[in-house]
């Protein structure tokens, strides 16, 4: 077994620098790497490019990095829950690349799996396709989208073992598995870190080969953005 465990979040983030491109898993606030984000805030890194489906809310998730103006460029599909984000974008402080959600997923997965680019129908005929190569296949038009290149990927899983194998829970899975192995170094934080053999190999969502560093996270807040209930 090749051991991927690191002692703590500090060790997990060793080598992060100003100006790097980071992938961060999560949909809304579900499945975001809370510990790694906190540490990025503490390290006060600047000029980051962040690839993440959303940009957090004003006081949580990537909103914490935005608040300290640590992000230079944001690559996302939807950023509507964050007033500080909107302010920085409209004032021109923040560079924003809006990408269709399925394309964002495909560009991460392409990086993970060694495809330089993919063709997608999403965005054809819209401003998203401007300046990009298009091609017709079987009478339908597609847009060429390149795989992302990133220095670090920060993902969050439910359970993991020392070999870096990961299991996700519910819809907290989202972009996390796609970012594993899509960057030079993938850092996985998990709610529960177990010994090799404790996870059923049949149930592994992401094999440890895609993960370079794994640690058990602490104090998960797991905040809910839109708490919605029905009456009994």
């Amino acid at each position: 077994m090749i051991k991927k465990t690191v002692k703590n979040v500090q060790e997990a983030l060793e080598g992060v620098k100003d100006g790097m491109t980071m992938m961060l898993g999560g949909f809304g606030l579900s499945g975001i790497p809370e510990n790694s984000i906190s540490e990025l805030v503490k390290l006060n890194l600047k000029d980051l490019t962040c690839i993440s489906n959303n940009a957090g809310v004003d006081d949580f998730g990537l909103g914490l990095l935005l608040h300290k103006k640590q992000i230079k460029k944001m690559i996302s599909s939807y950023v509507g829950e964050n007033a500080e984000f909107e302010r920085q974008m409209l004032s021109g402080e923040l560079d924003v690349e809006l990408t269709p959600q399925g394309t964002l997923a495909a560009k991460c997965q392409a990086a993970q799996q060694g495809f330089p680019a993919i063709f997608t129908p999403a965005g054809y005929g819209t401003e998203v396709a401007e300046g990009k190569e298009t091609r017709e296949f079987d009478g339908k038009m597609y847009v060429l989208e390149h795989a992302y290149k990133a220095d670090f990927a920060f993902v969050k899983a439910w359970k993991g073992d020392e070999a870096g194998n990961l299991i996700f829970k519910g819809t907290a899975r989202n972009f996390n598995p796609l970012m594993c192995g899509a960057a030079t170094i993938t850092v996985a934080e998990v709610e529960e870190l177990v010994k090799p053999g404790e996870l059923d190999p049949n149930q592994i969502h992401i094999p440890g080969i895609f993960v370079q560093r794994i640690f058990e996270g602490k104090n998960y807040e797991k905040r809910i953005e839109q708490r919605t209930v029905r009456q009994k």
Binding site: G80, Q101, G102, V128
Partner: peptide, 9 residues
Amino acid sequence: VKGMGGAMD
């Protein structure tokens, strides 16, 4: 400008 989310796909 909130983004297209999954609508374009």
